[in-house]
Structures are given as structure tokens and as C-alpha cells.
Nucleic acid binder design. Sequence first.
DNA 1: TTGAAACCATGGAGCCGCTACGGGGTCAAG
DNA 2: CTTGACCCCGTAGCGGCTCCATGGTTTCAA
Lengths: 141, 141
Amino acid sequence: MRIGDLAKATGVDIETIRYYEKAGLLPEPGREANGYRAYRQEHLERLAFIRHCRALDMPLESIRRLLDFVAHPEAECGDINRLIDEKLARVQARLNSLRALESQLAALRAQCGENHSARECGILHELVAAAHGEACACHTK
Amino acid sequence: MRIGDLAKATGVDIETIRYYEKAGLLPEPGREANGYRAYRQEHLERLAFIRHCRALDMPLESIRRLLDFVAHPEAECGDINRLIDEKLARVQARLNSLRALESQLAALRAQCGENHSARECGILHELVAAAHGEACACHTK
DNA sequence: TTGAAACCATGGAGCCGCTACGGGGTCAAG
DNA sequence: CTTGACCCCGTAGCGGCTCCATGGTTTCAA
Ligand SMILES: [Zn+2]
Ligand SMILES: [Zn+2]
Ligand SMILES: [Zn+2]
Ligand SMILES: [Zn+2]
């Protein structure tokens, strides 16, 4: 399997595959006589593993650690749980801040109805007023 | 006002202030005889404006455009509305994908209760199985 | 007066996870 | 013999900082 075949089989961009190799996530494949990378089934599975973890938005460093566990199945899995728990906590924290952000933006947006000159735009007014230290619609409460 | 005073007054890191200047968001201040930056009230307000926008997670490019409106109050504010609307849409899209991610991670986490060897870890099993093309707890639905 | 601590300056590298480039080599079909 | 589809490598760019190295300036106290 050449890199293009692997890319097609997994839906991963060729450059990304090479990047994973350089990042130490994907083991260096053998080479054909002309220097082309020659992949085998194990690479395909490994790449699928990586992409599945990426679909869960795990950072490459976490994936590296998960791959270590795959390679050393005798280790205790406590770190795996912790890794997921921490990721979950980060996602929930981000959810909370995004929810707050959503209502702030909505409050700000409500300050301007139709088109008019920027001078009279409620949105711009809020932003400038807040920069002067006054209360703003988006950050009250 | 020297850069350290401005930093203290706004809570913005000194390096970040210099970065905003280089990025064209903060106008170049005058200099003291020794080359130190000399800020005035207008810089403080401008920086507060920038930070307030950043608190709304607006990218620097959007802030640049908002500052253009402050400088040109006769322009129509339609673009301001659009800017907020687009940001709001992006926040909501991100919220949706994060909500999905949260339940995926929770489902995955539920695969492993207590500590045991990685070989028998439900989490690792799911991830490896998914890489083989089998169904996984996190992505069934 | 001296000397340490705290401030300021510049330019460049590093973070993450790619993505896009530029400049080349390889190989089969027409 | 040329075209096009592949492949190789190395480097730079994205955003929004953050940190570093190296060196000059100010400010205070001993
Ligand atoms: Zn308006
Ligand atoms: Zn606000
Ligand atoms: Zn487990
Ligand atoms: Zn899954």
C-alpha cells in the first residue's frame, strides 16, 4: 500500500499521514526500491485508531499515551480513565464558557436592530462604553 | 504611562500589549527619550476595547474591523451586525459539536469501571475495535 | 557610590494540528 | 517525448499569544 492508497482507505490527507509519522504516532513504514513508503495492514489500523481518537478531539500527546497502552497491555489502566476524565472535564468547562458566551453575544446583538450609521449603532456603543468602564449589556450580571 | 503601568491598569500582559501593537491593533505610542513606550489615556481605552472584544472571543481580525468603525462612525453598521451574527453562529455550531463530544466521551468512559490491566480495559477495547471498523460505544447513536 | 532588583527594549522560537507551498524524482499511458 | 499522476523532502504559515536570550535603563537601599 502506498501513501495515496492509505489516504484513500482512511480518508486522511497524505500530508497529515506524513505529519503523524514525523510526530511519532505512526511507525515508519518500509520503503519500496524507489523510496516510496510501503504500508501494511497494521499501519491502516493504527491510523484508524489515531483518527478515531482525533474524532474525540484527543490531543496527539494523549493518543501517544493510549498507543503506549496498546503496546503494553499489562500496565494498569488507571491513567486511561484519568485521561478521559480530564478530557471530559475540559469539554464541560468549555461548554460552560461557550454557553455564557452565547448569551453574551445574543445580548450584544439585541442592541442593534436595523441598519444605521455606526455612530448610532447600539453594538458599537456597548463596546465603547465597556472600554470606558461602564456596564455593558453583554457582561451585566 | 509606561508599558508596565498600562499592563497593571488593564491586566493585560506586557508581551501581549507589544503583540497587539505589532499586529496593528494598538497604535504605536510615543517614546520617552530612553526609547520606552509612552502611553496615554486613549491607548488605555483602546486596549480595554480590545480586551472586551477578546472576552467575547472575537478574533483580532474582527476587532480590527470594529476599530475601523469606531474610526469611521459615518459608515453603515450592517457589517457589525453580520460580524456578531456570524460569531454567534460559530459559537452555536461549536456548542453542538461539543455537546455531541461530551456524550461520546461519557459513553466511552462508562466502558471502564475500576482499575485493571490495559488488556481488559473497556475503553481501550472500544478504541481498538473501532479502529478495526467495528461499532464503538462512543459513535453509536 | 555602588550594586542589586526591577523595569524596558528587540528579535526569534515555540505551542497545536495540520495545510500549503516549492522544487524535485518516478512511472505508466498516449 | 510529453503529459499527468503519483511520490519524496523541507520549510513556512495559521492564531494568539508566551517565553526566551541578550542587553540597556531606572530606581532604590546599603
Ligand atoms: Zn447597528
Ligand atoms: Zn460586555
Ligand atoms: Zn480501564
Ligand atoms: Zn467511537
